[in-house]
Design a protein around this nucleic acid. Structure first.
Lengths: 228, 228
DNA sequence: GTCTATATTGTGATAGAC
DNA sequence: GTCTATCACAATATAGAC
């Protein structure tokens, strides 16, 4: 496929003040609508027409601002990545003592996701269906194609784990395992929400209560699990 | 949309012996190809043409056997559900002592999924993008629209948990939390594999080793986590 | 049952008026 | 910047020969 190098879109006018959320400028309204639609249906299932309707504009404007469906999808993906991942990375790489770190990570995840419950499902689906998203994930976070922060965060965690092991409060554990365990326990219930509510016969209220319960139970559960 | 009630397809000829996997009969070859393509791209992203090519037949045959893309997608979904869920349900509802049950569930999940690693990602995406799949999930497993086995399995687990609590080997825990915890720890790494390998900088071999490690670590981790 | 050819939509994208 | 109208093509689905 030959891709004509056109960049038709004018540079967005400089804004002097942030737009009001309810009557935001057109570009944000489109991005918000796209966000909602892409979350629900995934990139392949999303329809430009539905986004336009939800943004209250016509379909041509979507192309005026974002040039193509791919452009819009990339913008949404980027925004989604920046919402979930950096705060946790930042926390995990910090100097917070390990037990606090675990508790804070759980709270950070669960509180953020309670406000954006379908975000994990969207991200997982996106990465499974479009392998190239893995690269975009780095570019979104660091501007680089390759992974800079993983070594830093992991070595920080390794040092902290070693400390706990010496203190006798934890058994030898790989940093990767710790990270994956926390992520699994926090993210999975949201990603699998439709399956879980169906199989376990829960309604929305019960799901919310379940998350609240896990918010207070998980930190302790995790720390106990890793004790010697 | 008016749906003409046609059932053009002949009943599949009775088979006297199971077909050889490599040169299976056409219907299975199509279903296998569809399975692979739907897993990779999701229902919305899958293309009938790609399925036909991968099955080594032309596109018209897909419609001859499955009538529509939706028909094919439903067949694949049904098959996927039957692969992952019933074995675990069956195990969790059984009389196996609880600690063994946990270990066996972990092994069952991880061993099955190591052979079909993208199945969890496909199922989660499918349920997130197509809410009606929740009903199909029941019909696939029980033939019923409503959830019959959840009460049975959950009450069995509740009884076993109460037993452990009396014995002082476990603290009071909801059966739902136990199930979700096990499912999270086992399914998430597969569903999030592209994200995890990217962020943690793992290759395929390292991922396999990680799963192997967790296969032996997780049962103990879970039981410790729930201890008083 | 399996094929080729074709009909019929669906959907992303563009042209051009205002 | 925003709209209406339309294009071009991709993708599902069907007809009909063999």
């Amino acid at each position: 496929m030959i891709k004509p190098t056109r960049s038709r879109r004018r540079a967005p006018r400089a804004r002097t003040s942030p737009p009001a959320p309810s009557d935001a400028d057109t570009e944000s309204r489109i991005l918000d609508a796209a966000h909602a639609v892409f979350m629900r249906h995934g990139t392949a299932g999303a329809r430009m027409q539905e986004i336009a309707r939800e943004a209250g504009v016509n379909q041509a404007l979507l192309h005026y601002y974002f040039r193509s469906k791919k452009g819009l999808a990339d913008a949404v993906f980027r925004r989604a990545v920046l919402t979930v991942i950096p705060p946790v990375i930042q926390l995990l790489g910090s100097d917070t003592p390990l037990p606090d770190k675990v508790a804070r990570a759980v709270h950070l995840y669960l509180d953020n996701l309670s406000r954006a419950p379908i975000l994990p499902g969207y991200l997982l689906a996106e990465l499974n269906h479009h392998p190239e998203r893995a690269q975009q994930l780095f570019r979104a976070m660091t501007g680089l194609d390759r992974n800079e922060f993983a070594p830093r965060v992991l070595s920080r965690l390794r040092a902290q784990i070693a400390e706990q092991v010496r203190a006798g409060t934890m058994r030898a554990t790989r940093a990767e395992d710790l990270v994956i365990t926390i992520a699994s326990l926090c993210l999975f219930p949201f990603a699998a929400r439709p399956m879980l509510t169906a199989i376990l016969g829960m309604d929305d209220d019960e799901f919310t209560r379940l998350i609240k319960r896990r918010r207070s139970d998980l930190p302790d559960f995790i720390l106990r699990g890793f004790r010697p």
